[in-house]
Design a protein around this nucleic acid. Structure first.
Lengths: 203, 203
DNA sequence: TAAGATAGTAACTGATTACTATCTTTTGGA
DNA sequence: TCCAAAAGATAGTAATCAGTTACTATCTTA
């Protein structure tokens, strides 16, 4: 049988995280119950608490899983790119590709950002987003120095706008309930962003 | 005394909506209970159900309240603007001003968009956002035709990006937990957007 | 001013939820 | 082969929450 009874703890934790990411693609994270997670894994609800001290620790694991994978993808994308603009484009595409591969990610992130009093998971997410911004700011600063980007570019605004460009696609996908469209619209969206930040027009 | 016992139904509904908008500025909408709403109004929990058939009807009233006010503000902003770009700028500022005035609005909207199976409130919100997009598309098309905006401008992408520009500011404010910063950064953010869509550079 | 209609209270209900206590099965090493 | 520990099943518990019910206070108007 495909019964996956009795897995080692690490494997079970991994599967818990995957189940939660999957469920986020289907419903509001705030409404995901431990019973639903367990059912998705083919395990009883109580079994989850053999591996996690509480639900918050589960969310923490999910956020850690996502941030690690996303940051690795972004690093890989930026690596070896000839110019800052090419690095930004690769980063943009890596980010949107990641979302399309894991459609639950936007809902999950928004769900975490909704919390007014930050939990451990929220804090972890915020530090990831701060790191993301720093990386963006470094590339933007480099591009401004090299003359590829506008000399009068406001780095903070440009970083916020980069994230906003992704968010625009995400919000639209939440309205349409169609995550795949993000992939289609991503190149055009980045083109528009590029026109806002680059130094001169193309021929 | 300030005891607001026995208000007419319409007044009580209005106060319920205001209480909910206020509470959204302080916590995750998904965690707002009918008891908390009632407490904020100085009324018992059961009293709410004299005016609403259920919680979803309360959310519906909240979304209606917000959409009406926001659209009115946007209309007023766009009215009498000489050029499409000026109309867009006025619209952008009206939107960000509205958010700063009602800090619960972003959390509320995200909370509604999180729902996978749309409720009446969610459907109402989506139709408002669709109307918003149409309005944007009309202005953008006009600007492209008049030569103020780029001739090769993709209207859909530009509309998504406009909303994304606002979202970038909103996401940053959720991370920093500082809504007021939106007002400070809004002019720079629009400047960047303008550079992406307008036909030629300024002198 | 009497009487019906409207608005509110206090206490309760049933369903749901995160979490736990106890018993059972599986696994892997000596 | 045996056994201890790890992993899971079963069956709970206490708390929370949306919604209800029976009753009361207040307003409106004929």
């Amino acid at each position: 049988m495909a019964r996956t009874h009795h897995l080692p703890a690490e494997e079970r934790k991994e599967r818990t995280v995957r189940a939660m990411v999957e469920l986020c693609a289907e419903q509001d994270p705030a409404r995901i119950t431990t019973a639903a997670i367990a059912a998705r894994m083919g395990v009883t609800q109580g079994a989850l608490f053999r591996h996690f001290t509480g639900k918050d620790e589960m969310w923490q694991a999910v956020v850690a899983w996502i941030t690690e994978r996303l940051m690795r993808r972004l690093d890989a994308a930026v690596d070896r790119r000839a110019t800052p603009l090419m690095a930004l484009e690769a980063m943009f595409m890596a980010h949107t590709d990641f979302i399309v591969e894991h459609p639950g990610v936007p809902r999950l992130i928004f769900g975490q950002l909704q919390h007014a009093e930050p939990t451990d998971a929220t804090r972890l997410l915020r530090s990831m987003l701060a790191k993301y911004r720093e990386r963006l700011a470094a590339i933007l600063t480099e591009g401004r120095a090299s003359g590829e980007l506008r000399a009068d570019l406001n780095i903070e605004t440009a970083a916020t706008q980069f994230i906003g460009t992704v968010q625009g696609l995400v919000v639209q996908s939440l309205i349409d309930d169609d995550v795949a469209r993000i992939a289609e619209q991503a190149p055009e969206a980045f083109l528009l962003y590029r026109r806002a930040v680059q130094a001169r027009e193309e021929t």
